[in-house]
Design a protein around this nucleic acid. Structure first.
Lengths: 266, 266
DNA sequence: CGTTATTGTCTGATATTTCAGACAATTGGT
DNA sequence: ACCAATTGTCTGAAATATCAGACAATAACG
């Protein structure tokens, strides 16, 4: 039960757990929190222990400490735990400490209110794409993708923009080969993806139609930092049958707002 | 430099650090994060070390681990650190895992959009009051109180509601004597506070005028859980000179929405 | 420019934490 | 009613993470 276990979380923190060795409590905490984030639902202590490859006794110890600090909290009566209130406070502090991020959130709110569509703020985490924040459409058509869940970059419109600074060579090294395979089994040809990236760079926006799933039309526009680099994108997730007229209207709005949030002159 | 240091963080986790003793890494992490939350701004490693009463070498070790996990991140170039992206993701997961909380957030958004006023969600943390989430007024009059900062209960309208289930005896034991002293030096008579609590319970809402600061009129309404207990409140923070007509309109809205979010029948 | 404080990195020793495993108490399946 | 799996709590022992302190390199200050 050391290496082969599936779903095992391997943080960079601490590299390999050579047989019979001990791990630091801190690293366990980090692994635990990331496991919980991935799983995206309350877990029992026993399952957490399996997931992070830690002894049960150790896991109980750690979980109890985190419970006491309100970083975790009990959910239901049957020993399930999930993130706690303190995490909310820490996260809030993160997202409000910097004026730029605050402006972005306000824009997100405003766009959601004005259009009623699903709006997302996206970025990279390592070599995966993640949603950093979102406002879900108020309509019945609700495609909620979870904040913080890692998704292969080629599945997304934003991904094509976020990699705009890379050469083809760099792209090849950066994207894990398996990530070209879509959830429905289709495979994107790398060459096609590379030209998408180039197109996105030229256009200053990117669209994907029925890619990661059959029902959505995604459009993304870049938010540039003060060096002109693209670290984040703003995007709409629309029903795939949205009429052309409305789509181009929304695309224009998206690009305008994203430009307004960019720090570079250009 | 063991006991007398001011501003030292004392988490419940681990009680007393008897002389010459070592502390667990996990406890240090917890103390560190809470120190950062209190301080509400990026800190240098040296200052963190002082604040949590840990050796510098240990602090560097821990900070580096947390940086690698993106639970902290570097801010600026001069060795400052603050909460990192991972915290945002964990916090987001917390606040969306439960349908009730999600409904509350939506209501918060809607009320802010409709009224343009500052709206807050409040609760208790131990024997202090904290803001759990807020939407700031879009107008020029912006009273932003920070989410997660602990405030003496008697300073707040919400506090009067949140303690509604306690007897006078319990209140006496619960509130630290120093908490009756307002920031401007005035002191609230405990008896007066107790009768405020009773009044709030009877009315089903609570208001304070120019209490914690001279410029605000606060009104709070209770959100009841499925047992009828009040764990959270919804409140408006208004300019103190808001006309009576608008105030009563807003109060009615507040009470209606808070009742809509309550889970109890009553 | 000399003096004092701070930062970031290392080191070795020991006080402590992690770990394996045992335990009783539940739970679940058949 | 049986057997198997799981939960939560304890234990002692070994492995190691925390600690004090030293170090060079900047920074702060008069």
């Amino acid at each position: 039960m050391s290496d082969g276990a599936t779903g095992l979380i391997e943080t960079e923190a601490g590299a390999e757990p050579r047989n019979g060795e001990r791990r630091r409590g801190i690293d366990r905490v980090i692994m635990l929190l990331e496991a919980l984030l991935r799983h995206r639902a309350p877990m029992r202590v026993g399952d957490i222990a399996k997931m992070i490859g830690a002894p049960r006794s150790t896991t109980y110890e750690i979980v109890n400490s985190l419970l006491e600090a309100e970083m975790l909290e009990n959910v239901g009566t049957e020993g399930y735990v999930y993130f706690g209130r303190a995490m909310h406070l820490f996260g809030w502090a993160y997202s409000h400490h910097n004026a730029h991020y605050r402006r972005i959130i306000e824009t997100l709110d405003k766009m959601a209110a004005e259009t009623g569509e699903t709006v997302q703020l996206c970025g990279l985490r390592g070599n995966k794409y993640i949603v950093l924040d979102c406002r879900d459409s108020s309509g019945p058509f609700r495609i909620s993708s979870d904040v913080g869940v890692e998704v292969p970059i080629p599945w997304t419109a934003s991904g094509r923009l976020l990699l705009g600074h890379m050469s083809e060579e760099e792209l090849k090294d950066f994207i894990p080969p398996g990530d070209y395979k879509l959830p429905d089994g289709r495979v994107i040809a790398p060459a096609e993806f590379f030209s998408d990236v180039a197109l996105a760079r030229r256009q200053g926006f990117s669209e994907t139609v029925a890619l990661a799933d059959r029902f959505t039309w995604c459009m993304a526009a870049p938010i540039r930092d003060s060096y002109g680099a693209i670290n984040k994108t703003l995007c709409f997730v629309l029903p795939v049958d949205t009429p052309e007229a409305r789509r181009s209207e929304l695309l224009a709005l998206l690009c305008e707002r994203a430009r307004g949030l960019s720090l570079a002159g250009s």
